[in-house]
Design a protein around this nucleic acid. Structure first.
Length: 492
RNA sequence: GGUCGCGUGGCCGAGUGGCUAGGCAGAGGUCUGCAAAACCUUGUACAGCAGUUCGAAUCUGCUCGCGACCUCCA
């Protein structure tokens, strides 16, 4: 690693130097999706962001164990007794077995993540596969006096816990306000009578007779609460204390605050060294979210199938769009923004492709080392991918200038720049070239033949014919460019 | 109401107490049969008011506007 990596730790709200607990090993846990619906643009942000972190840590030489869960049980519609499990509700509405819902959306999620070129996590545990671990953790919390059973459910005792722990530290909550029932606007939640205090949260919920997802436990038949699965699974695969926990800012409270409380309430110490949170994607200035109904799914973006979309956007355009902003800033969706990203990315890819056939000079008029250093510095500064991209565009300008003859580059610099682009654009940012349908092996030969025939026409100054050929190919999606040393073609 | 954050040129979006972010769009020019692409030149922006300072868009205070969380949410 060239420079020390700094990450903004939500615990301190400051940038902190990243120092792993047991180098070269790094434990990275990212909150995965609750699989009761298709992933939307908002979901792409954390998974792309932490994909870059994962890639960069690996590049820096760390052995990263990347764990990202699939929440397939326990996520309730609300905190009330009647709160229906999200998965179960979807299953009822679509007349499917809950696990069919889980499979359907898990596979859809995987496909979207694959298209966004995110690397799969090393371990992708499911909440429903770790019921025993969750029960064991709940038991230990009860044994430590931080949880209690009530009518077949188990609740975390926030007041008891807060006597010796700083509950609310991560999210900036004030315990007294939570105890008082939070803000004036907070509506009365049903089923609160089972709790000793409104601030308490469920570790285990008793299953009502019609509830289809149910497991036996020491407290009767039921299902785990929403927050406990992350605590149990991160502990199982990363240990009682691990390096980085990531997720959306909207999970800060109550989810991550509860995770800390559960882990400390169970084993006595904080589970995570660095809490890293990405900001929201907004649409018309408002958070894109399921409950607001203002979301656009990734598949809709990929195929243009949404009323708000003027066109389809490729997965790499989405990825590029996300990485053009810093992960801690909100990012506003717009067709204009996506279209600008699409064009910019195409220019970037074209320049990288051009790099391989650039003519070298004995000397260089540009310094390519600064670009590489700039990329490292930007990534080390809290994963500033926006600056990395601006550095890549500096390289684009250099590449095109050399091609245009206004600058010169030595072969050594060309090689250096090639490695830089490969490393940062491809490997770290994960921006793969758009793979257009090749159309088969024959296309190359056919295109070369057509271009040769058109060149003959141009020699004869038969521009009517040469333009007819070019226009015809354009309508088929093939673009011809007449350059000084010949004609090149590309498929849209 | 509480806590936190944001307000940057036509749009998106970085950053910073004095030194070019970048992308997209626009204007002029070069190249070209034309086109496309590319290259060169071009924008003196940081919500408002007051203060600190040699100097602030960057720090402080206030005002206005917007948002996030406080309930499910990436």
């Amino acid at each position: 690693m060239q420079h020390p990596l700094q990450l903004t730790n939500s615990l301190s709200r400051k940038k902190e130097q990243f120092i792993p607990i047991n180098p070269p090993f790094v434990g990275l846990y990212v909150c995965g999706p609750t699989v009761y619906g298709e992933a939307h643009l908002g979901h792409a942000r954390p998974y792309v962001t932490f994909d870059v972190l994962y890639r960069y840590l690996q590049h820096a030489g760390y052995k990263v164990r990347y764990v990202r869960n699939i929440t397939d049980v326990g996520h309730l519609e609300n905190d009330a007794d009647e709160g229906e499990d999200k998965i179960a509700k979807k299953a009822r509405l679509e007349q499917l077995e809950p696990m069919e819902v889980v499979e359907l959306y898990t596979q859809s999620f995987h496909e979207s993540m694959r298209r966004l070129n995110t690397l799969p996590p090393g371990i992708e545990p499911r909440a429903s596969g770790h019921i025993i671990e969750q029960i064991e953790m709940i038991k230990s919390i009860i044994n430590n006096g931080h949880a209690y059973e009530s009518n077949g459910s188990v609740y975390f005792d926030v007041i008891n816990y807060a006597r010796e722990n700083d509950y609310g530290k991560l999210s900036g909550r004030v315990i007294e306000e939570l105890i008082a029932g939070a803000g004036n606007e907070r509506r009365e939640l049903e089923g609160q009578q089972e709790k000793r205090n409104p601030a308490d949260f469920a570790l285990w919920k008793k299953a009502s007779p019609e509830h289809i997802m149910r497991w036996p436990s020491p407290w009767g038949v039921g299902f785990p609460g929403w927050h406990i699965e992350c605590s149990a699974m991160s502990k199982k695969y990363l240990g009682e204390t691990f390096d980085i926990h990531g997720g959306g800012m909207d999970l800060l409270f109550p989810h991550h605050e509860s995770e800390i409380a559960q882990s400390k309430g169970s084993c006595g110490h904080a589970p995570v060294r660095y809490w890293v949170h990405n900001n929201m994607i907004t649409i018309n200035g408002q958070k894109m979210g399921k409950s607001l109904g203002n979301f656009i799914t990734l598949n809709q973006l990929f195929n243009g199938g949404h009323a708000m979309l003027e066109q389809a956007y490729s997965p790499m355009t989405i990825r590029f769009f996300i990485l053009q902003a810093h992960y801690r800033s909100t990012l506003d969706f717009s067709n204009e923004g996506l279209q600008a990203a699409e064009k910019g990315l195409a220019r970037l890819n074209a320049a990288i492709a051009l790099l391989t056939r650039l003519k070298s000079s004995p000397d260089s008029t540009v310094s390519v080392g600064e670009i590489r250093e700039g990329c490292y510095a930007a990534l080390n500064d809290d994963l500033n991918t926006a600056i990395v991209i601006s550095q890549l565009f500096e390289a684009v300008r250099v590449i095109n200038s050399v091609h245009a003859g206004t600058e010169r580059m030595s072969q050594a610099d060309i090689d250096h720049l090639s490695q830089t682009m490969e490393l940062f654009a491809r490997q770290v940012l994960g921006l793969m070239p758009e793979i257009a349908d090749a159309g088969g092996e024959d296309v190359d030969g056919l295109m070369n033949l057509i271009i040769a025939l058109r060149a003959d026409a141009k020699v004869r100054k038969d521009y009517a014919l040469s333009d007819k050929i070019r226009d015809g190919l354009t309508t088929m999606g093939y673009t011809l460019k007449d350059e000084k040393d010949g004609t090149t073609w590309s498929k849209a």
